[in-house]
């Protein structure tokens, strides 16, 4: 099934920091509940997180939000350091993690400049009442292994299956909602776009082409590292800064 190059476009300008994507991801992917102590211990698992930065001096303070998930790098630094091939780049342009193989050296996490690889320090636990809400399509990861955003690969697989049964293509318009990862579907402001960069007719390809032009807003994160990410960010349109710049 070679050919796709799944990727995402994040329009930072639209992000309002509501964290809906985070919650959607948690419930879609069987991520244990992050309690306060997990955050205090810095062991919370959030496959997608919204980083918040404060800008400016009081009273002129602005909150800036940027959603960060696995960038599914073309030349991912996390992949070659794994001694057991637990992570590699598959032929759909995804950086995949094989839980069975992982032995938990945490080397990949160290070499990931985006901090998007998470380690299961404990056996995951859910309150009794939530036992029946686990997604049957997603593995519950045991302790001692790494996990990270998969671009909801289970949804991609399911959509492909449905599409091929219907004799259609997974990238067709009608399958868009079922193909999109949970975070994309949950986003109220259409900050996130998901699609196939190899398909010249896809929405993301069109956006990429438009925004990569000279005055476009496209950039990738930590470009100087040469990781060649599969997630493209669109710069914030900063009216205020422009006003300041132009007097």
């Amino acid at each position: 099934m070679a050919g796709e190059n799944w990727g995402m476009i994040v329009d930072v300008d639209k992000c309002i920091g509501c964290q809906a994507c985070v919650v959607a991801c948690q419930s879609e992917n069987n991520i244990p509940i992050n309690e306060e102590k997990h955050f205090n211990e810095r062991r919370a698992i959030e496959w997608i997180r919204v980083e918040r930065y404060w800008e400016g001096e009081f009273p002129d303070v602005k909150a800036r939000f940027i959603p960060i998930m696995c960038q599914h790098c073309g030349d991912a630094p996390c992949e070659p350091v794994c001694p057991v091939f637990a992570t590699y780049r598959n032929d759909e342009g995804l950086n995949v993690q094989i839980y069975n193989r992982c032995i938990g050296t945490r080397f990949c996490s160290n070499n990931c400049p985006y901090h998007v690889r998470f380690f299961n320090f404990w056996e995951p636990e859910w309150p009794e009442s939530l036992h029946n809400q686990l997604n049957p399509d997603v593995t519950v990861r045991s302790r001692g292994i790494m996990e990270k955003c998969t671009f909801c690969i289970q949804r991609i697989r399911r959509t492909k299956r449905t599409a091929s049964r219907a004799g259609a293509d997974a990238t067709d318009e009608e399958f868009e909602r079922s193909l999109d990862p949970a975070c994309v579907n949950a986003c109220p402001t259409e900050t996130l776009y998901f699609g196939d960069f190899n398909d010249p007719e896809s929405k993301v390809s069109a956006m990429k082409e438009k925004e990569s032009k000279r005055d476009g807003r496209a950039y990738t994160m930590l470009e100087n590292l040469g990781t060649n990410p599969g997630v493209i960010y669109l710069k914030k349109i900063d009216k205020h800064a422009e006003d300041v710049a132009h007097g």
Partner: peptide
């Protein structure tokens, strides 16, 4: 025997 591409290497 196990030609997996890692990190573009």
């Amino acid at each position: 025997a196990y030609p997996l591409v890692t990190g573009g290497k």
